[in-house]
Structure formats: C-alpha cells, structure tokens
C-alpha cells in the first residue's frame, strides 16, 4: 500500500485546507475532563489514524467529530470543530444533516435487525435520497460493491443481516455508512471484534475508500495504523501529544511519549 515517503514536516497541526479541524477542544464528562486543548487537522481524502493507550480520549475525540457525544448525558464541550470551515457545534447546524455528511462505523458490528438490503437502504430512505425503487436498488448495490460485500451477499439481500459473519457485518456497516454518500467516515476501532482475515479485508477496503472519502480511524493496533493511514495522531491522557505523517510518527517520533508507546514500553 502507498505510504507517503516524504518526511519533510510542515508546522503541525496546520495543514493547507484541511477537511476538518479541531481547535482548543476540551470535553468534560460531568466534572471529569476527558480532552484537553486538542488541536488537530484532518486532511481530505486521506486516512488519519488516532492511536494511544486505552482511555486516552481518542474515541471520545472521534465522537466529537459527528456530535455523537450529544446522545450522552452530562457531556460539555468547549472549543471548535469545523467541517469545511464551518463550526459543527454552531446552533445553525442541523445535527441530523451533519451526521449524514460525517458517517460513522462502530467498534462492534451493529447491523439493524433487518434484511441486508434494508440495512443499506436505511440511510438513503430516511434522508430521502432516492425517488424510486430503482434508484434505491442502485445505491444499495454500489454501496455493497464499494464495501466489497456485493459478491458475497448479492443472492441473499432479503435475508437478515444478523446472519452474516462478524467481518461481513462490519463491511455491511461500512456499506450502510457509504450509502448516505458522506464526505467523512469515522471508524471507531472497526476491526477490534474481527479475526485477522476479516481485518485484512476491512483494511483493504479502507485503503480503497480513501480515494472517495476522508477517513478518520481509531485503532489499538499500531500495525494497523501503519498499514492503512497516511497521518497518525497520538493521544495520551486526553491530550494530543503528536501528529504527523504516519511514516514519520513510526520511524522518527519527536515526543518521548510517542516513542515509548510505539516501541511498546507502555500502553
């Protein structure tokens, strides 16, 4: 897979024309602060990996990016997150439309208890993306194709999605997210519940999706971060410690903590 070899460092975290940015982001669960002054840019049509030890805030940060934390009681957020230079926490933003633009794939495959077809058609239906059954069929087929699942399921679209294997379920969830035509896809440890073969398939898929979507992936596996991402951000204790080209983070980290984590001394 293509890894950007150029190691010249621009002044991080700023990159030219980022798709999404976080500025001075602080997040509190009640009185507990979970994120401290996070500043991060997400580059368009690249895979950005968020790594760090458990409880470091990387998943929390990811959930800030499509306001999934809104569904949790007692969360307060300070700072700014932008998508195409617009603050997504602005009052004028409709969170429903926002989440249609920023899709999400979860840690555990969570297909709805419906048929395979209905799972993929769910998003297009609720957002009124289609006017006819044919259009819907087409979206479902393309999404399944993009998620690399079409070949395996095209004869069993009316069957319940819960009958698929774990890896297939997760790719179905990716197809479900893709069907809404989002601009950004957030993935929260998408492979942690999968076996190595299913993991390899999903990783391949992520690499292909990069040509059409901006992807942010939280992962526990540093190999995975190295394999699929172009940029890597290292979180520790709720702070963004270091961010840069994946190559540079893994070969030449600037911060001692990053070095410690990627060489396995803690984490």
């Amino acid at each position: 897979m293509a890894v950007v070899t150029q190691s010249a460092m621009t002044a991080e975290p700023s990159v030219t024309s980022p798709k999404m940015t976080a500025r001075d982001l602080n997040l509190f669960y009640g009185d507990n602060q979970a994120l401290f002054d996070v500043n991060l840019d997400i580059v368009e049509r690249q895979v950005t990996a968020l790594i760090g030890p458990s409880g470091c805030g990387k998943s929390t940060f990811l959930r800030c990016m499509n306001r999934m934390n809104d569904t949790i009681d007692g969360v307060t957020i300070k700072g700014k997150v932008t998508l195409d230079d617009r603050d997504i926490y602005d009052k004028a933003i409709d969170v429903v439309q926002l989440r249609a633009r920023i899709g999400m794939v979860f840690q555990k495959p969570n297909p709805f208890p419906k048929s395979i077809y209905d799972n993929v058609a769910y998003g297009p239906r609720i957002h009124g993306l289609v006017n006819s059954r044919d259009e819907l069929d087409e979206i479902v087929m393309t999404s399944l194709e993009r998620a690399g699942l079409l070949k395996e399921v095209k004869d069993r679209l009316p069957e319940p999605a819960t009958g698929l294997s774990g890896g297939q379920q997760q790719r179905l969830c990716i197809a479900r997210a893709v069907a809404v035509s989002p601009e950004v896809i957030l993935m929260d440890e998408p492979c942690s519940a999968l076996d190595p073969i299913a993991t390899a398939k999903v990783e391949e898929l992520i690499d292909e999706l990069r040509s059409n979507y901006t992807i942010v992936i939280v992962t526990h596996s540093m190999q995975q971060a190295a394999r699929v991402s172009q940029r890597t951000a290292f979180f520790h204790l709720g702070k963004l410690v270091e961010v840069g080209e994946t190559d540079q983070i893994f070969t030449n980290p600037k911060d001692e903590r990053t070095k410690g984590y990627i060489t396995g001394r803690f984490g």
Binding site: M68, Y122, C173, A177
Partner: peptide, 27 residues
C-alpha cells in the same frame, strides 16, 4: 435494545423518532 443499535442509527443521521420507529420498535 442495545445502545449500539441506537448509535448506529444516530450515526447515519437518523432523528430520534426515526430511530425509534425503524430500529428500536422493530427490535
């Protein structure tokens, strides 16, 4: 009904009532 299903629906941009009607209620 597990939270993961609700999250999946919200993550696709469904509103609360859509989530209830299409996901929670059938489940």
């Amino acid at each position: 009904v597990p939270k993961s299903l609700r999250d999946g629906s919200y993550g696709l941009g469904a509103t609360k009532s859509e989530t209830i009607r299409h996901v929670i209620f059938p489940a």
